[in-house]
Nucleic acid binder design. Sequence first.
DNA 1: GTAGGGTTAG
Length: 713
Amino acid sequence: MASSASAAALLPLPSPSCSSSEDSDDGKHLPSPPAPEANTPPTQQQKRRRLERDYNVAMKALALAGDLDEVVAVFAELKRTAADGGDGGAPPNVLCYNTLVNALAEAGREGEALKAFDEMLASGVAPNASSQNILIKMHARRSEFDLAWELIHKSGVEPDVGTYSTLIAGLCRAGKIVEAWGVLDWMLEKNCRPMVQTYTPIVQAYCRDGRIVEAKLLMAEMERLGCLPNVVTYNVLIRALCDDDKFDEVEQVLMESSTKDWKPSTVTYNIYMNGLCKKGKAKEALELLDVMLGEGLEPTAYTWSILLNCLCHSSRLLDAIYLLERSTELKWYAGVVAYNTVMSSLCEMGKWRGIMKLLTDMIKKGIEPNTRTFNILIRSLCVGGKSSLAKSLIHSQGFAANVVTYNILLHWFYYHGKLAEANRLISVMEEKNIAPDEVTYTIIIDGLCRERKFDAATACFLKSLTSGLSMDVLTVLLNRLVYADKIWEINRIFDGKDFVPDHHVFDLTIRTFCRAGYCHYRTFYKLNLILDAMLKRNSLCAHYTMEYQTVEDHALGNTQAHMSGSGVEMPIPLVKRNRMRRNRSRKRSRMKVARRTGANEGIQRWIGRSRGLTAASPPVHRHCHCCLLPTATAKAFYLSPSPPLLPFGASHSFAKVCTIEAKARNKPATHSPLPKPYSPTLPPCSLPQKHRFNVVHTQPTWTGATDVVFFAL
DNA sequence: GTAGGGTTAG
């Protein structure tokens, strides 16, 4: 059964009332113009339409080839043609504008994209759903979800399945799976039916997080809903399985493809071969070429690149070079990518002379090197100790240096302690208007920290926030600061007005401190200080209620409850603060006894009791130490007549939250919850670990209702 | 003929 047909047949949803993409297409629902008779010359309007279509196809092809300037030029020509023609200088239609805006946005020229969009509006051309989706995609890529949101609400264009899918894809790409589920809920509320393109990004987000079990569960759910996963969805899964070394499972997935109504494509094999190659199984990867050919699948440029990479990784560099040279005989056009692949391998081996030779070869063949080719050359020169030559190359004509080029050199200078050179290069970047990216900031921050210039590194991080928070950059800085015991600087990070720590930041901070040994009871106060600073000024206060305790707090019977900054206090039924305060001295002595006697079980029971738990509670409950709950969940538990002991630990708890939340909204749950979004398995608690924290990050549920960070003793 | 999910070199 075709997936779309089965989706339509089985999905228990009313027909979408929102506009579909076809609805919004230009003129699709207008009465069709009369078909020209065989000997009637085409009308002016038909000629115009044909012209626009031809220009649009050309623009799309140029955009695909990456020739943006040419796209812009062709569009300008179309406008000129219109102005010179006899149709009163009508502007290009919405499809042509969409192609232009999309091409510019995809190339990272967002400013120009927005300008083109404004020009379209000024010309009186009404945007359609696609125009909106292109802009949403652009905003989502820049993590400007508020702008995307505003656009949807203010544009007046009814969102369609493409709009929601774009938003979901953007959220997933930004790691915001919970929010993506929220959008899915929202589109269901609007009676807009999800497609395989809507679910696949979520599957991918799970896979990217290494949450393959959940990805597979979602795929099973898709099947159940009649929205069958297609080859793209399976490709996402296969990639994750490869990354996880689960090649047997890949084989099984491929074996089952015929019964599951999907057919592996060249991309599937490309992913599989690349996965094998990355895990050192280049031989097996090369063998797959025959399997692929046997299935009648033609290798693409990607395939050849992967194969070349496999050869390089299996110490068959000469074979790779041979393959490059013989590519024409193999009816394969070895382009710049293929050359770059082999040159990268030579670079890793420090063979810069070999790179120079291949560069000459490709130029002789008429293959034009691109920026990446030069970057490989620059890197190889640095590795080969020819950094001065590399530096001079960057200024030579015909070489379009990009941010990667500067990153390579910056890394080299910092690595060798040449701070003055690095600073000069940063100035050149500024002069040439080359914006630093995440990697630049990582290199600079790491370099400065290595020179023990922690203050400058922190300032650099705060500056990086102007282009958005990068968890990678934060990870590097936090690691360095924590290991160097620079608590004041860490505090400064969380003082920045632009910085809004979310649960990922909390998680990272806690993990970093714990890994650096701050989980010991004597030093834990430092993490405590930082968490306090984070809580004081984070926007989570509006959405979250956080309550945490340290081991020592437990021992002393202190409970610090940090309540919502919005003034709405969320009662936490789990903590009986007053009773604890009354019994403080008794508990302190009990704790002392437990410690002295090494009665670990006693401590466990005590912690359990202090949290209103019974000895029969599953271990995960007794180990719980810190939790971060969205208000909605806290509310749900508060509303529940018989609240579960803790909002995590068993899947039925999640089901309960879902039901309660659905009831609160006076409507039935639209989905069946995905079972067991995580497995509550914790390492057994043993005495030597009593002062060590493990941070367990549970996964959000499908509703986005629960996202819990907690420590385990 | 526009948008919305997947693959290469770094």
